[in-house]
Amino acid sequence: MKTLDKKIALLVFALSDEEEVKRKPFLAQDTLAKSLNKHTKDIAVQSDLPVFHFDETKQIGDDFGTRFSNAIRSVFDEGYDGLIAIGNDCPYLQVNHIHQAKAILENGEAVLGPTYDGGFYLMGLSKKDFDYRAFLTLSWNTNKIFEEFFESLKTRRIECHSLEKLWDINYLSALENLVLHRIRNARLRSSIQSAVKRRSTNYFVSKVTELKLLHFTLFNKGSPVFYFFQS
């Protein structure tokens, strides 16, 4: 099998600590935003792939789909044949997920890592399978993006593999779904544990189940808007 070791890049599509806190105020608790970004940075370094980090200073476009598509196109314009895209909102993400995706890409196939909220925490795609215009038409701001993306590839007869389904953190109540012992990063685990304990301090809604009814989630990396009612 012909490998693409030096032609696959890792795209980290994630906002800075400061910008994440503006979008998702609960991430300010116990330096959770910093812990998530540090965790993602560590995973990127461990991947041994060339890394391209697109935060809000490098993202171009008026909506998520445009910004994400432009970032992908920029990486491919650097001469890479494939890329793996991740964000900073999946505490379960490990380097083995990157390596699994890389192996699938080397086999000429696409790969997605689904999340329980209908999005995905990882996307692996080759340059030949990237359709810029088609990307712009996808429903990035809905809980159907994984299914829609998967079906769009299937329609074009592109084989797509799915990694294990994981939880990500797009809203406060999602913290309740996490199993702490599965999070290997001690700093991140501690931040999440503290944030869960203090969740009722900063928001007037007393029950986590009520928070689920109030959130509007824009899926995946660099989500542009996040609505929460603060006291």
Rank of each mutant, 00 (worst) to 15 (best):
L83K: 01
K58H: 10
V51F: 02
S47L: 04
G87W: 01
Q46S: 13
T66D: 04
F54E: 00
I86H: 03
A28H: 08
E20R: 08
H39G: 10
A85R: 02
F26I: 03
L93K: 09
Q59K: 10
A71Q: 03
S35C: 15
I72C: 15
D77V: 05
S69H: 07
N70C: 08
D63N: 15
I60H: 11
E19S: 11
I43N: 01
A33D: 01
D63S: 14
F54H: 06
D30C: 14
Q59Y: 00
L27I: 05
H39E: 13
K58N: 10
I60T: 10
P91V: 08
I60F: 09
E78S: 14
D30I: 04
K38D: 15
L83Q: 00
L27V: 07
S47P: 06
D48F: 09
E78H: 12
G82W: 00
D48M: 10
F26H: 02
F64S: 15
D55K: 07
F52G: 04
Y80P: 00
A71W: 00
G87R: 00
L83E: 00
H53R: 11
H39S: 15
E19C: 08
E56K: 06
K58P: 06
D63W: 11
S47Y: 03
I84N: 04
I72Y: 02
D62W: 12
K22P: 02
D30N: 15
P50H: 09
